[in-house]
């Protein structure tokens, strides 16, 4: 095997890692925004935002790594996907702007403070929704003609994409709720516990619905799952997912503080792995493979040399910053 065969595989996993890191880490921050309306008052909303204030920016950077990584290593996929999904991407970017500035502006504002709370919340919901649309469109498959998408501005729109969009909103909300269980005490933690149960049911329901819908999509995403012996070696994924769901349910009922968050992360990761396994070896289903879209080994190799040292370094100082800010965040602690 030569570099042109191996490197795209390596980069498929690195980009996948960046995306899952983003989904998990920014997922719980976006979840905080989605759950913001359920807080009792503005003080609780401050408190919720303060649990993530020191680390949200680093979390969001994984999205930038996913984007820039895709441009560097799979430029054709980057160009095809982003230009095809122009409008959902636009919604996501604008929503991320409102969400991001709210962290700073809310604590500078006096009379318009509630407004930045609304910006944080609506920005988070729309970001999650847009990311769900993008996910749905990708899973469903984006037919390309000569490397270009020719379905027009709304070609990605479908009932399936809308369902994955709603599913992602609920999924992020679950991550946010379990994060709050981990990081808060008292009344706010109680609210989070109460939200977690219905959210869990909804997310499990969405996961079943997506799984049931997949075989009927044109992208043949599920073909791999049911051809030959694949189902045997792939079977740990659905089995673990089911087990995970049970453990999560029990952990929440038992009022555990740490396990719900960890298990919610695992639950998300397993769902993601299930989809990636289905996508392989396409980077843009149904037909653009990782080798079609790859930049040459001279590009992928050059970045890989740096990534091999820099990604572990990034993970190390990310762990450091989470350690600095570990433990419960008290009301009134943080911004003011």
């Amino acid at each position: 095997m030569d570099w042109a065969t191996i490197l795209p595989v390596v980069w498929f996993f690195i980009i996948g890692f960046a995306v899952i890191m983003y989904v998990l880490l920014d997922g719980f921050v976006l979840g905080l925004g989605i759950l913001l309306p359920f807080a009792d008052d503005e003080h609780q909303r401050d408190h919720m935002m303060n649990t993530a204030a020191p680390i949200w920016d680093g979390n969001e950077t994984w999205l930038v790594l996913g984007g820039a990584g895709l441009l560097a290593t799979f430029p054709k996929a980057y160009a095809a996907v982003l230009s095809a999904l122009y409008l959902p991407i636009l919604v996501m970017l604008i929503a991320l702007i409102f969400r991001g500035v709210a962290f700073e502006f809310r604590f500078k504002a006096h009379t318009s403070r509630w407004l930045w709370g609304v910006a944080f919340s609506v920005g988070s919901v729309l970001t999650a929704f847009a990311q769900g649309l993008i996910l749905g469109a990708l899973v469903e498959g984006m037919p390309l003609t000569g490397g270009k998408y020719v379905q027009g501005a709304f070609g990605w729109f479908s009932p399936f994409a809308v369902m994955t969009a709603v599913a992602v909103v609920f999924g992020y909300a679950l991550l946010g709720a379990t994060w709050l269980i981990l990081k808060t005490e008292g009344r706010l933690q109680r609210i989070a516990f109460d939200l977690t149960r219905p959210l869990m049911l909804a997310v499990i329901g969405f996961m079943l619905m997506v799984s049931a819908w997949l075989p009927f999509l044109d992208s043949q995403l599920m073909e791999r799952w049911f051809t030959g012996a694949h189902i045997l070696w792939l079977s740990p994924v659905p089995i673990l997912t089911a087990l995970n769901a049970i453990l999560l349910w029990r952990a929440v009922l038992a009022n555990r503080e740490v396990q719900p968050f960890v298990l919610a992360l695992c639950f998300f990761a397993l769902g993601f792995i299930g989809l990636v396994v289905g996508m392989w070896p396409n980077i843009v289903p149904p037909s653009m493979t990782i080798w079609d879209a790859a930049s040459p080994p001279s590009s992928q190799g050059f970045v890989l040399v740096g990534a091999a040292f820099l990604i572990p370094a990034v993970l190390a100082y990310t762990v450091y910053s989470y350690r600095v800010f570990r433990g419960k965040v008290l009301a009134g602690e943080g911004y003011h």
């Binding site: 790594l65 820039a68 560097a72 160009a79 590009s299 990534a307 990604i311 100082y317």
Partner: peptide, 30 residues
């Protein structure tokens, strides 16, 4: 031009953006 420009931008993310974003948290709240 992605083969040439993309890796430069990717190095920007890996060397700079994570460093800024992560230590900003320590700088502001630590």
């Amino acid at each position: 031009a992605g083969n040439v420009v993309g890796p430069l931008l990717n190095y920007e993310v890996l060397t700079a953006f994570f460093l800024e974003a992560t230590f900003l948290g320590v700088m502001l709240f630590g």
